[in-house]
Design a protein around this nucleic acid. Structure first.
Lengths: 340, 340
DNA sequence: TGGTATAGGTCAGTTCTTGACCTATTGGTG
DNA sequence: CACCAATAGGTCAAGAACTGACCTATACCA
């Protein structure tokens, strides 16, 4: 009966509010007798959602953590907040739950009322881009489209710009989304080339599901993520940095996230940081953000980059504040660094 | 009837998967006849959740966006992903939906099965701290406790370390959570001092709801967020920066998020950036991340900070790579910059 | 044009739900 | 310590709803 079901949902939604509900108030809100409220609570418990009841004066009902995840009943603002949160999470994925984030985002986006969509769009445009990832940010919507196609077993068609700049149209059976090195990749079977390929998602254009079913194939490896990571290692240049930090390891441990790099102690006052990064900008930012003295051993490119940065900072602070800036055309002054 | 309701929920959960479901398969999965599936779909539509049906061969049912937000049925991984996403979102709140994010997080945390909690905890520890906010990160759990107390109208008790370092115990009727200047604040009525106070949440300890009801009071202003922002303006020092950027405004517009500052053009090759920040580290990072030439006009503290940073970078790159670093004890070398 | 999918009407038997009334139990308060 | 207010749960009868079986209409694809 639609009446009972909708009442149960309404009850769940009330109970998800962080407060206690006396039975009488619930009965009034739901338009039924108190006895029915008790029965509804029993029904929810049967469904696996533990409703806790405080007996005695000013007792009441409240939903507590159980073994199953109850259906989340969100109001408009919460739905928007979650969508925005997941969109930004997709831009800076957290190891181990990248795909689940995208799945959850896809779920949400499919049912998000249109009046909320524009709010999401205007809000997620306001996120601060991080250095090293500027320009080649992935559109979260693209991710959800691909996630949907993968789950649905649908073939997709898109335009792809390869690393050497050549454009081509692709027909691909999408297989898995993998995020590695702060970028998103699609592992799929290229039907025209009849082989497995890895595509950088920020280089894909006009992705459209064709409607055709993709043929199930065995993975080229046991673990798709490992496969992609391995291929990338030989394809994408990566900088491995080797830096001596002028502070005790204990002091820095909290500031160095696990995805930044590994710390090892040298003595009481210094320690060694080994980290990887695909752009020099990213490495430079991580290092300056540490706020301590440091000394770069490897790679020379990073030394060079930091020198250029230091020079830029010096120029930024030495010009006289009254003079019109940049009047002398110094041809060797770098303009905006190209997007990598 | 629990049977029908749970079947409806199961159906909703199936339909939230990004694929099409033919009626026959749904009937099989739900253990009912196809006619009942059709009726269940009708029930869902009555509840306001639009189920789209594709007729014809290989048609099927799918849930589409409607006017109401359907209950979200998440699997374990998705629940973890959303919780982690919201936790990090609470650390770097997005203007306009700060409170909704916390509300949604509170909702989730209250019902999150315990087996998922430890996964959330281990994952959210891996987030990268940003410069300028290091050390005084807010614990998202604290936010959800406060959000719950506010919604429940419960009085809270906590220890607070004021700006001058003095400790005190507080009894407060919590009123609103406000995030401003990349920090979280609690606006509440301090019962011992009988006045409205603003608390920095990262300075609160041992927050516990006392169980006592907080007495409803009128806000000291129409808009709590504006009230807090106004008070902060007179309490917390803020740097207003004035920077000339050596690149056309059009090129930079995408890189300057709306919360970074306002751009205005000077000529075809340069533009002006006016921005605010509560720490010099934050301002310095934003500026260097732009990747273009720039020139700081104001404030002098920022110029000083950037000079020191440039000097640090120079030291980091000029030491001979073979020599043991930091052998000479230069007393004027700053150690880790204190947490602001 | 044929096959397969959804859409929806009707009917009878079964099952479930609801509210009213009842008692038991628990926890805080005066 | 007794009282009160809250949850917990049993039972009953009337009513309502659900289900599956059968039917036809309709749309889409190959």
């Amino acid at each position: 009966m639609a009446d009972t079901s909708s009442r149960l949902l309404k009850l769940l939604s009330l109970l998800q509010t962080p407060r206690e509900w006396p039975g009488g108030e619930l009965a009034e809100r739901l338009g039924v007798s108190r006895r029915t409220v008790r029965r509804d609570v029993e029904r929810l418990r049967d469904l696996g959602y533990p409703v806790e009841a405080m007996r005695g004066a000013d007792g009441g009902y409240r939903l507590v953590a159980g073994t199953a995840m109850p259906p989340l009943l969100l109001d408009d603002e919460e739905a928007v907040a979650i969508t925005v949160g997941l969109s930004t999470a997709a831009r800076q994925p957290v190891r181990g739950i990248e795909e689940a984030s995208v799945r959850a985002l896809a779920k949400l986006e499919r049912v998000l009322p249109s009046r909320l969509r524009y709010r999401v769009r205007s809000l997620s445009g306001a996120t601060v881009p991080l250095p090293g990832s500027a320009g080649d940010d992935v559109d979260p919507e693209l991710l959800t489209v691909l996630a949907g196609a993968i789950a649905n077993g649908e073939r997709v068609r898109f335009g792809y710009q390869a690393g050497d700049g050549t454009d081509s149209a692709r027909h691909v059976d999408p297989h898995r989304l993998v995020s590695a090195r702060r970028r998103w990749y699609l592992l799929g079977h290229d039907n025209d080339r009849d082989d497995w390929r890895i595509f950088r998602i920020d280089r894909m254009r006009d992705v459209t599901p064709t409607g055709g079913r993709s043929t199930p194939r065995d993975l080229p490896a046991d673990d798709a993520a490992a496969y992609v990571a391995g291929k990338l290692y030989s394809l994408v240049p990566t900088y491995a940095a080797d830096v001596v930090l002028g502070a005790p390891m204990a002091e820095l441990a909290a500031r160095v996230g696990s995805d930044v790099g590994e710390l090892s102690p040298i003595d009481e006052r210094t320690c060694l940081l080994r980290c990887h990064g695909d752009t020099l900008e990213w490495l430079a930012m991580r290092l300056t953000a540490l706020g301590c003295e440091f000394e770069v051993r490897e790679p020379p490119e990073l030394v060079e980059h930091l020198r250029a940065l230091a020079a830029r900072l010096t120029r930024a602070t030495t010009a006289s504040p009254d003079a019109r800036p940049f009047t002398t055309d110094a041809p060797d002054r770098p303009q905006i660094s190209p997007v990598v």
